[in-house]
Computed example of a mutant assay.
Amino acid sequence: MINFRITLRQRRITLKVLNCHMRIFMLITCLLGLVPLGVPRAFADQAPGQVSAELRYFGTCDGSAVVQIGEHVLLTANDEDNILRSYHLLGGKPLGQFDISLLAGVDSNEEIDIEGVARQGDLLWWIGSHGLGKKGIEGDDKPARRNIFATNIPGPGLENLKLVEKHTNLTDALRNSEDLKEILTPEVWNLAPKKGGLNIEGVVFAPNGDLLVGLRSPLFAKKGKKGRALIVHLRKAGDGWSVVDVSRLKLDDRGIRDIHTVDGGYLMIAGEVHSGGKSALYFWNGTDKPELRSVDGIQNLNPEAVIQFDGHQIIFSDDGTRDRKPDFFEAEQECGEFYDPEQSHPLVYFRAVVVNP
């Protein structure tokens, strides 16, 4: 009778063999040119809208805010902890890490929920979602999320990262805006972000210096019509901000997940107010109707951030709820289940795709 029980020792040997086979496979595919070995290979020319590479960034399960700080260096934040991480453009392990909690004026166990970053000259402006918790106002207020502050642009290792400016949050400016009173109603202020409450996810500076804040939620909706995404234009007013304009954009009933400056306007990731649904990439010149950009392969992601490099778009995914399989013998679990801030795990990473223009 065959004994199908596998001892722990046998299992470890099996995993080592599988790992060895995988390394050999990766070596062969690299030699054949099937895996990107550098920036030129990763940004190979293909048809417009086609994905030419998938990249992996280890150490966290999502990149909710991404900005380029060097020729081939990215700085990222995520909405699960307060740690900024730098990476090589093509991914891998972090080049540096920095817990931003102290600089932002919050405890390390308080989640800032950083959703966007905007570059203004030599400053990087980081913004929290300003939203409530999942339950809404009843005992689920999240004051640390009402945060906006500026740092310098650090080196790749982040050793010289420092706070430059810290402003009061945007809540008062949004509450006091006549342009937003019919949208940000008392009911909306008491809702959780994914139930239609306030949720800031995109931020960028306009050429005139105004801060443009993209809302994932709420949408501006008239009865019987699809909701329009909101971009709130803010201007510094003393120690705070004031709303000077509001753009209402037709994005097929989607909100803003990210907004990024490019020549002639902005790239925008649009996604559902709630979890799931289909995301899309748009170009907006700042005044006219946004143009939908065709991207094959984007639906395999949960897109949350976008940048442009060398004429190509890089779209980053929130993989916190994406299933990962530890090994042949164990069941799949969500990426976030493997995350441990004290140690790295090979299944804790978020993905990005390189898209040809």
Rank of each mutant, 00 (worst) to 15 (best):
L32P: 00
L32M: 05
G33M: 04
G33F: 06
V35Y: 11
P36H: 09
L37N: 11
P40Y: 02
P40D: 04
R41T: 00
R41C: 01
F43N: 12
A47R: 08
P48Y: 08
P48L: 10
Q50P: 04
S52A: 12
A53L: 12
L55M: 11
R56P: 00
G59C: 04
G59V: 06
G59L: 03
T60C: 01
G63R: 09
S64N: 07
V67H: 07
V67L: 07
E71D: 03
H72E: 05
H72M: 03
V73M: 12
L75G: 09
L75D: 04
D79R: 09
E80H: 15
D81R: 10
R85N: 10
R85S: 08
Y87V: 10
Y87P: 02
L90D: 09
L90F: 11
G91S: 08
G92F: 13
L95M: 13
G96H: 12
Q97F: 04
F98R: 08
I100K: 05
S101K: 08
L102M: 10
L102S: 15
L103T: 00
L103C: 06
A104M: 01
G105P: 13
G105S: 09
V106F: 04
D107M: 14
N109Q: 11
N109W: 13
N109T: 07
D113M: 05
I114C: 10
I114T: 10
E115H: 00
E115F: 00
G116V: 02
A118V: 08
A118N: 08
Q120P: 01
D122L: 07
L123Y: 13
L124I: 07
L124N: 10
W125S: 15
G131P: 09
G133I: 00
G136H: 10
D140F: 03
D141P: 01
D141S: 15
K142L: 00
